[in-house]
Amino acid sequence: MELLLFGIAKDIVGESNIDLSDQSSVPQSVAELKLFLSAEYPDFQKLTSLAIAVNSEYAGDEVLLKSGDEIAIIPPVSGG
């Protein structure tokens, strides 16, 4: 299960992606993924907001993560 990182998320982690399958306990939902990120990389807690996309759509905390999903961290956007 691969996690894509963009913008400041890439700087916080130091990589442009993380393989979640390597983790000792793989997050099962968006809520669990957010908890995992905050614990592993406390700088995420300092951001204005933190959203998760699953298969290139914004995903709420209740969304379950399946192997094969394309998961992305969406830090505060700033286009335009």
Binding site: G7, P75, V77, G79
Partner: peptide, 14 residues
């Protein structure tokens, strides 16, 4: 369209 783009579209500016 520009106001909504700035809120929702995953583009980041450094």
């Amino acid at each position: 369209m520009i106001d909504t783009l700035k809120e929702t579209v995953p583009i980041w500016k450094k």
